[in-house]
Every structure is written in C-alpha cells, then in structure tokens.
Simulated assay, not measured.
Amino acid sequence: MPLHSLQHLSSTAVLGLWQLTEPPAELWAQLPQATTYQTLMPTTADAVRQAQWLAGRVLAHALLWKLVGAAQDGLVVQNDATGRPWLSGVEAQPLTLSLSHSGEWVAAVVAQGSRAGVDVEVIRDKAQRLASKFLSAAEYDDARAATQAAPDTAHMHYTRLWSAKETLYKLAAQRGIIFKKQLLLSSFVPEESGEIPGTLVLDGAETRHCICYYQPAPGYVLTFCHEPNP
C-alpha cells in the first residue's frame, strides 16, 4: 500500500508517509482536481520527479481529508516563487503544508493554525562529506564524538543532522538563512528515534524548538517539527 501511514501529531496536525511505487499515470488517477494540477506540474520534471511531485500532492490531500474532512474542497497545493509549497483557498482557516521526498519515500505534514517542517532523506555519505559547510564548530565536534565509538553509524548520524537542519529551515519559512550560524542543534544522545533540541537565530532573536527523528525504513531518516505559530 503506497500510503504507508497517517499519524496525528496533535489535534491540529497530521504527519503522513507515502512509499512511492507507482508510475505517474497511476498517481494522476488518485489526485483530486487533476485538471488544475496539470497546469502546475513543472515542465522540466522527468518521470521520477513527476512521480515524487504527484505523490506529494496525493499525500497532502489525504492528510487534508484526515484533518479537516470535506472542508478541503477547492484546496490546491501551490508553490511560491522560491518553490515552497502552500495551500490556496484556505483564507477562512489557515493551513500550513510541509513536503519532502527522497528516493522512494514522500513525507508531508498538514497543520491547522500552526507551523510545521518535515524532511526525509536517503542515508548516504554526502552529509558527512559536506558537514563542515552546514555544521557549526561545536556541532561538528559533537558529531565526531558521537560517531567515534561507532563509525558504522556515521552516514546515518550526519544525514540525520542535515535533515534536522532542513526541518528547522522549513519551520523558519525564510530564505537566505545560513545553516551553520542560524540553524543550531544542541547535543543529544543518538538513538533509533528521539528528539534533537534546536535553536533558530532570526532577526537578532533566538527561539528554541524540538525536532523529532526516526527511521521510516532501512536506509532512510525522517525529521519533523510541529508547534503553534509564534
């Protein structure tokens, strides 16, 4: 079943996971308002990107149905000029949407009257190779210490750190953020699932956040954060 799970994070937010196994044609058949979405599909997307794009929107509508039921009529997933997804037609009851895809997994959070971020990543060596570019000096030292005793977990750990910063970035909903200076992660004990304390440094102010993580499937890591609007 491609729809892997739907999970209430609270009474106002739902997290969903979709395992992507279908070609684009099958996803089109499951998508409400397909005619509208045909005009929104990126023209440069190849078959893989099309499938990920479509699955994200099918999943978003499934979460909307779970959260607000028939009130989703007329809602459409749009993208702003920077590519960030948003929901049109929600003036009466503001809804936040966060989407992510990597490999065969698509993740989404829909939140009502609150904000959210979600990120799913294939575990690979890229995050470790680029760690000095997105981790602060203190975070880099913590990561090295955390993986020194178990080097076989290094790829997973660094991917998890990258994913956590991606989730914080989506929560911030601002462009031009410097990952190693404005998206900060505190020390934590790495486990199969858990929480990472995070700090957003925006406009001279610091705010604290809690990023949840776990592995939705072997070879993948998922992070998410949901909280009331500031």
Score class of each variant (00 low, 15 high):
M1D: 10
L3Q: 06
H4G: 01
S5G: 10
L6V: 14
Q7F: 06
L9D: 13
S11W: 03
T12Y: 10
L15T: 02
L15N: 06
P23Y: 04
L31N: 09
Y37K: 11
L40K: 11
P42R: 14
Q50P: 08
W53A: 11
A55H: 07
L59S: 10
L59Y: 07
H61K: 08
L63M: 07
L64V: 14
W65Y: 06
K66D: 15
L67G: 06
G69F: 08
A70D: 15
N79K: 14
D80M: 09
D80R: 06
T82D: 10
R84P: 07
S88I: 10
A92L: 13
L97E: 14
H101A: 10
S102G: 09
G103F: 05
V109F: 05
A111K: 07
A116H: 05
V120M: 01
V122K: 02
A131I: 06
S132I: 07
K133W: 04
K133L: 09
L135A: 04
S136Q: 09
A138N: 02
Y140D: 14
D141Q: 00
R144A: 02
A145F: 01
A149G: 01
A149I: 11
P151F: 13
P151Y: 12
T153D: 12
A154P: 05
A154Q: 12
H155C: 02
M156C: 06
H157F: 07
Y158E: 06
L161C: 04
W162P: 00
S163C: 13
S163A: 09
S163Y: 03
Y169E: 01
A172V: 12
A173Q: 14
R175F: 00
R175P: 01
R175E: 15
K180V: 02
K180D: 15
L183S: 09
L184W: 03
L184T: 09
L185V: 11
S187D: 06
S187M: 01
V189T: 15
P190T: 12
E191D: 14
E191W: 00
E192F: 00
S193F: 10
G194Q: 12
I196D: 00
I196K: 00
L202R: 05
L202A: 08
D203W: 05
D203G: 01
T207H: 12
Y214I: 01
Y214Q: 13
H226E: 12
E227V: 01
P228S: 09
N229H: 08
